[in-house]
Each structure stands twice: as structure tokens, then as C-alpha cells.
Simulated assay, not measured.
Amino acid sequence: MLRLNVFIQVSADNRAAVMEAAKELVACSLKDNGCIAYDIFESATREDVLMICETWKDEESLAAHEKAAHFVTLVPKIQSLASMKLEKFSF
């Protein structure tokens, strides 16, 4: 299995738009084959930090997700409004 932690740093001006896009990304991604978990979290201590936590069955499932219409549309939208940092773990 694979775990991805995607940290998103966003300004107050862009936070609502990023949350809207991220929630749509979560809802669509949960339907992807091989998706075990996909959620967005808000920092309890920093209003400018969000995190998407993903768990995938395998590399093939993740690769298919990265080609899905919702991914190729919504991730660039989020990237245009905020900075993103990815951590990836296999277990």
C-alpha cells in the first residue's frame, strides 16, 4: 500500500477556493479503483495549512488516479492558488 501526505499552504484570500477544489477532489478520488482512503484535514494551529491524506492499494491504482479527469483538472487548480509539498510512503 501507499500513503501520500500532501501539505498545502494557502493564503487567507485563496483558502475558500482551495477547500472547494480539494473537497471535490476528495469526493471524486474516493470512487477511484484502488483508493483505500482519501481525506482533507485542516491544521488546528495554522489557518494557512491543509493536508490531504491518501492511501492507495498499489502503484498502478495511484498511476491511474493521476491520469483521471478530476485529478488533471483539480490539482493544477489547487497548485495555482497554493503551494503543495508531497510525502510518499510505502507500507
Rank of each mutant, 00 (worst) to 15 (best):
M51R: 11
D58T: 03
M19R: 12
V6N: 13
E59S: 12
I36P: 09
S83A: 11
I8C: 07
F71V: 10
W56K: 04
L2M: 11
E54G: 06
L62V: 08
C28R: 14
A27Q: 04
E87H: 08
A64W: 00
E20H: 11
A27I: 01
R15P: 02
E59R: 13
N33F: 10
A44S: 15
L62P: 06
L62K: 10
L30Q: 15
F7N: 10
A64S: 09
T45G: 11
F7G: 11
V6R: 07
A82M: 05
I52Q: 01
K67S: 06
L74H: 01
K31N: 11
A63D: 01
L81P: 05
I52A: 10
V18L: 03
L62R: 10
A63M: 08
K88Q: 04
I36K: 14
A63T: 01
E66G: 11
I40C: 09
C35R: 05
F91W: 13
E42L: 12
S80N: 10
A82V: 06
V18Q: 04
A44G: 15
A17D: 08
V26N: 04
E87M: 09
A16E: 06
V6F: 07
L86V: 15
L4A: 13
M51Y: 01
Y38P: 07
E24V: 12
V75L: 13
M84A: 07
P76A: 10
V26A: 04
E60H: 09
A82I: 04
F89I: 07
A21R: 09
E24P: 07
L62A: 07
S90I: 07
W56T: 06
A17M: 06
M51Q: 14
A63W: 02
A37M: 09
M84D: 00
L30C: 13
L25G: 02
A17C: 03
A63C: 06
K85F: 02
V75R: 11
V18H: 04
S11R: 07
R3W: 04
E20R: 14
K57S: 11
A68Y: 00
V10S: 03
K67T: 03
E60I: 06
S90K: 15
V72K: 15
